[in-house]
Write a protein that binds this DNA or RNA. Structure first.
Lengths: 337, 337
DNA sequence: TAGCCATATGTAAATGTTTACATTTTTATC
DNA sequence: GATAAAAATGTAAACATTTACATATGGCTA
């Protein structure tokens, strides 16, 4: 592969001149510019980004850490980061890893080795302390979907508890009185917070949530189906169902309908996240919109500011986001007594 | 940020020794290994991947070129590449760009500048000639979802025509006699091939496809809805509908049902791609499975072999893939005369 | 035509690694 | 304890750039 020296030699100029042409530098005559450009083309010269990064000490990538791309939620996240990255003509460097402390740590380390100065990280398993230490070392490091008091200015997060409350209020407003929940069996904090918010709002309005009407499962279609079966197996009636996420909610609806319950006329179902799926299901899903892509874009912009050493006042930027209720077809007014 | 020299100085050894420790090199005593490792940790030393790549002349990334990550199809593609990349402890470098010749060219160039030696590229707009030239320059370049005779050994593609035929055969076997189609309005070859295959199979069995019962639209939910409305507006009856992709198919179903047609009892609908959505819709969609993720994995492995200068016999690896019919709930036997 | 400025070009150091080769140290053998 | 062999460590070049600084070139003005 042709180097800058090859170009210089053949063009009969110094490497400095070639470099200036390659970077559209300021002081170079049109004549040599043309001459050098032609030779670059002939040789198929392509500047080596590694050498460039080494000498300029700046990266032209944006790093993202997520578990994987199969989950549409994370695909949206990555897409948000990519949008902003592209605006700044940077490329996405993707570091995936299953959700374990080790793999999350490794994913971040790999980005660090590449001297990626801007990182948007989705970490659920690393400890607060470790993340705090990391963020002291990496100015342009921002966390998404996580809140840590000590580094609040670097955390872009969703108020899951409030989401649970909004769901409860919606169902209460629809005259429901008997509730069930499907949650995720994974030990991350989100499911707990969503459930807690839901429950606290029920409590506040004098309603009860029977503990046996809370079922846990894999956070996907099948998990929702199974959990709904378990719910029905209790034999206890309920008219409103709050589900951890949209995929599970759609699975639950399918089980409910298979068992002769109509959604929403017999049972209202509300999901969480508002991923693409929720608009394609039938009935279309009422859910809480989690604006991941928007949040990811903000996170990336924030990371860029921080990397640039710009002062960021966490009060005037909205680091906390509240999910928005999206009413579709899976919830309706409860007519029974 | 601490460099290898800092570590060497403080540990009282040469940079070569530090390098050997960092790379788990062969000839270094346990004692110095421990000593140096400790200092690396103390200093938070992180080897500079750019410098490394420069001197070793090898990359530790795998490049992918796709339009964006919003589309689940491309997210699956990227995910397949990522899976293989991770197995080889490489990271994904993502180069997105809308589908235009310029942006596709630029996306590939950016990967080239990073000296990415393995690339999986989804290009619809660059000419055959340009891609042929590129692949002469880049040994580890592989194209997915595209077939070019002259570089067949680097093309992993789906037989769209055959897909259309399979769909037709399925509907014919279900006793259907009046057909409609929804295609994509975009000028890439896939929609044309799918339609052509469908039509040729109908012709072969002595059936007709009324040209006014072919409608074109945006390849998404709304596009499907609109196209279905246009179909109904013709006033001509049909009992079987072949749709360009799953999203459009789901949109079409929703319009059909809104207009009083039951799917599948009144009209059978078959989609294409078998994205996540098709399992979540109601009725669940009968469709043609496009094994993108698997193909992306194979493409990545192929690119790795080619980059390694290994001989690849395009006959013994399956570069052409045939979509598989997935029967779900949106097609059924036609009982009318 | 000398002198001056602006513009264009060149020189060389620096970036952080790896690795072939050279040198030193340790271990084993007699 | 001398010697050889093996193991550990060090030296220095190479990788492909950018850029501060130095130098050369050309056009004006007086």
């Amino acid at each position: 592969m042709a180097t800058i020296k090859d170009v210089a030699r053949i063009a009969g100029v110094s490497v400095a001149t070639v470099s200036r042409v390659a970077n559209n530098g300021p002081k170079v005559s049109q004549k040599t510019k043309d001459k050098v450009a032609k030779i670059m083309l002939d040789l198929g010269y392509s500047p080596n980004a590694n050498a460039r990064a080494l000498v300029t000490q700046k990266s032209t990538t944006v790093g993202v850490v997520i578990p994987d791309l199969t989950d549409p939620f994370f695909a949206s996240l990555a897409n948000g980061v990519d949008k902003v990255a592209r605006q700044e003509s940077r490329q996405l460097l993707l570091s995936t890893g299953m959700v374990s402390a080790d793999s999350e740590r490794q994913a971040i380390n790999l980005l660090l080795e590449r001297r990626c100065d801007i990182m948007v990280v989705h970490s659920k398993k690393l400890s607060d302390d470790e993340l705090i230490t990391l963020s002291q070392k990496i100015p342009g490091l921002v966390f998404i979907d996580r809140y840590i008091e000590a580094i609040a200015e670097r955390c872009i997060w969703l108020d899951n508890t409030e989401g649970g409350k909004i769901a409860a209020r919606h169902l209460l407003a629809l005259n429901h009185t008997s509730f069930a929940c499907i949650s995720s069996q994974y030990q991350i904090e989100d499911p707990g917070l969503r459930l807690q918010g839901f429950q606290s709002e029920l409590d506040a309005s004098g309603h009860q949530l029977d503990p046996t009407l809370i079922q846990y499962g894999e956070p996907d279609l099948q998990g929702g189906e199974v959990a709904a079966q378990n719910l029905l197996a209790t034999g206890k009636p309920f008219s409103a169902l709050f589900v951890y996420n949209d995929a599970m909610a759609i699975g639950a609806i399918s089980t409910l309908e298979d068992n002769g319950f109509k959604v929403p006329s017999d049972i209202s179902v509300i999901g969480f996240d508002d991923v693409l799926l929720s608009r394609y299901s039938n009935p279309k899903l009422t859910t809480l919109n989690y604006p991941v892509e928007k949040m990811a874009m903000l996170a990336t912009k924030l990371a860029m500011k921080l990397a640039n050493d710009e002062f960021v006042n966490s009060n005037d930027t909205h680091h906390k986001h509240v999910p928005r209720l999206v009413k579709r077809e899976s919830t309706s007014f409860n007519k029974s007594l």
